[in-house]
Design a protein around this nucleic acid. Structure first.
Length: 494
RNA sequence: GGCCCGUUCGUCUAUCGGUUAGGACGUUAGGUUUUCAUCCUAGAAAGAGGGGUUCGAUUCCCCUACGGGCUACCA
């Protein structure tokens, strides 16, 4: 049987990083097994439906470089790929269950059920619509045929799966092994809602079967409903696919699942792309490869000490036996470190094309070859793409010396030394000679090289950090250098 | 509360019964450098607790604790 996996998000908002990882693992599984990766949109909840989500999902997967083989916009032979467009399919299948007495109509109102929940709670119990009480509730098992037909015409009913009590349901998760659950514990879950739409559970099972999904890879939050799903497969006498439930991604600190709130509180992204006021990993300056790399490592490793992977490398290295069982906390520092490494490995040219817009200002003063030189000079200093602009600003802007340190502003030698620098730079023909000249100058005047270099750096860059000074000076040229030394001198005089 | 899953440095993880429990991020100290960053070297840092099984348990089993998930006509 050929390998087919699916990523099945519901369009209720932006895809978050956990969803992206689920998509990634599905994608990698498909690649590894030369199978197909399918995107199915699970839009059965009309109340929570957000129109822009589907496009957001497409764009995110595209950005990450994990494009589906079949999807609503890339149709295969198992469509439609949006559940809302498959309504009649679900209805046909649920009718079969009813015919076989495996499902039934239920007419209990929200109010009635809520009252029951309330009463149970008062007794310290939890209400569950199941074998123990369905005989006393309003459904096609208790009502006469005529009553049932009459209520059905009022168009407000749900269809529930009739669960046979006291059977051990044995399910297998490929990551965790066998799990046994007694069917008494399960409730008669709704299959078809009163608006005629299927619930997740029903649509999911029907579609996975119809779309010939061979392995279901999804988040751990679905593990508790696996026995129910297994029962559905059994009711149809369908073969169950393999299941893998991925560990969850947890908050960086504290307890619980990673959520939008954490991201806002800690100022770290949680969405691949920006969504309204939430900035995405892309916009904050991550390479898609970095996020993919980090996400792959969050819950998986290949037994080697390799940490930096391209997507292609992951496609061959990924081994599903090595997926972790427990949840993993999201570590933003490590994600940045991985991005730093990917950025470092990028060519100067691709780095330039990535930040073409933000580096535009350099074009007025430098030729392209010089811009590339600037990039290679600062490349290894980057953690996020926008750092490139921060690191190169002084190639264009003259520093304003607002951060001037007292060590230099109060030092009486400073003005004299700066003046001597001017003489040095004016006299030399080749900037490569500058370094030696300044060393000599220091020796002659008994001034420490450290002090000289720092003063020079302040005048050129405006602060005490940055790449090799003489490389900078070589790029900005003699006249700009002299101008900036002058600038600092006049600043110090005031 | 009930059910399910899990538990190795602060974090991500390696270890398929015998190891000085390894690596990476972060952190600390030193080195390189004109500075910061990079880079290099070194350091601190872990098997939740209790019972078994075994010549020997981080590794297998049980209990407890803790963490997480689910408990909707949401997915």
């Amino acid at each position: 049987m050929s390998c087919r996996v699916r990523f099945a998000p519901s369009p209720t908002g932006p895809l978050h990083i956990g969803g992206l990882r689920t998509a990634l693992y599905n994608y990698l599984f498909a690649k590894k097994n030369k199978g197909s990766f399918i995107l199915r949109i699970e839009d059965t909840d009309q109340n929570r439906y957000i129109k822009e989500s589907e496009e957001y999902i497409n764009e995110s997967l595209n950005w990450a470089g994990i494009n589906p083989d079949e999807s609503p916009i890339k149709k295969g032979e198992f469509g439609p790929y949006r559940q809302s467009e498959r309504k009649s399919i679900y209805n046909n299948y649920v009718l079969k269950l009813i015919e076989n007495n495996k499902a039934y109509y239920a007419f209990d109102s929200d109010e009635e059920l809520n009252n029951l929940r309330f009463e149970y709670e008062k007794k310290g119990k939890t209400f569950k619509y199941d074998y123990s009480n369905r005989k006393s509730l309003k459904n096609s098992l208790t009502l006469t045929k005529e009553e049932t037909e009459k209520l059905k015409k009022q168009n407000s009913f749900v269809i529930r799966l009739k669960i046979i009590p006291n059977q051990i349901i044995s399910v297998e998760d490929k990551i965790r092994g066998n799990i046994n659950v007694n069917s008494n514990l399960l409730d008669d879950k709704v299959l078809i809602k009163s608006d005629g739409m299927p619930t997740y559970h029903f649509a999911n099972v029907v579609d996975d079967h119809l779309m010939k999904i061979s392995t279901v890879i999804r988040g751990e939050e679905w593990l508790p409903s696996l026995p129910f799903h297994k029962l559905l497969y059994k009711s149809f006498k369908w073969k169950t696919p393999d299941f893998m439930h991925l560990p969850l991604i947890l908050k960086p600190s504290g307890k619980g699942k990673l959520s939008k709130r954490d991201s806002e509180k800690m100022g770290i992204p949680i969405f691949p792309l920006s969504w309204k006021e939430n900035v995405g990993f892309k916009e904050i300056g991550f390479l898609p490869n970095s996020i993919i790399n980090y996400l792959a490592l969050l819950g998986w490793n290949d037994d080697t000490e390799k940490e930096i992977y391209s997507l292609k490398e992951l496609e061959t290295a990924f081994d599903f036996k090595k997926i972790q069982k427990s949840g993993a906390k999201f570590d933003y520092d490590k994600a940045k470190w991985i991005n730093h490494n990917h950025l470092k490995n990028l060519s100067d040219k691709s780095l330039l094309s990535l930040s073409k817009k933000s580096l535009k200002y350099l074009n007025s003063s430098y030729k392209k070859t010089e811009v590339l030189k600037i990039i290679s000079l600062v490349k290894e200093r980057l953690n996020l793409i926008p750092d490139l602009k921060k690191e190169t600003l002084f190639f264009y802007n003259d520093p304003d010396y607002s951060l001037l340190n007292e060590k230099f502003s109060k030092n009486k030698d400073s003005i004299k030394v700066l003046n001597d620098f001017k003489t040095v730079f004016s006299s030399i023909n080749n900037i490569d000679d500058a370094k030696n000249q300044i060393i000599n100058y220091g020796n002659e005047n008994n001034l420490k090289l450290g002090y000289l270099m720092q003063l020079l750096r302040i005048s050129i860059v405006g602060e005490l950090s940055g790449p090799d000074l003489f490389s900078i000076i070589k790029i900005i040229g003699k006249s700009v250098t002299l101008k900036r030394i002058d600038n600092l001198m006049s600043k110090l005089k005031n």
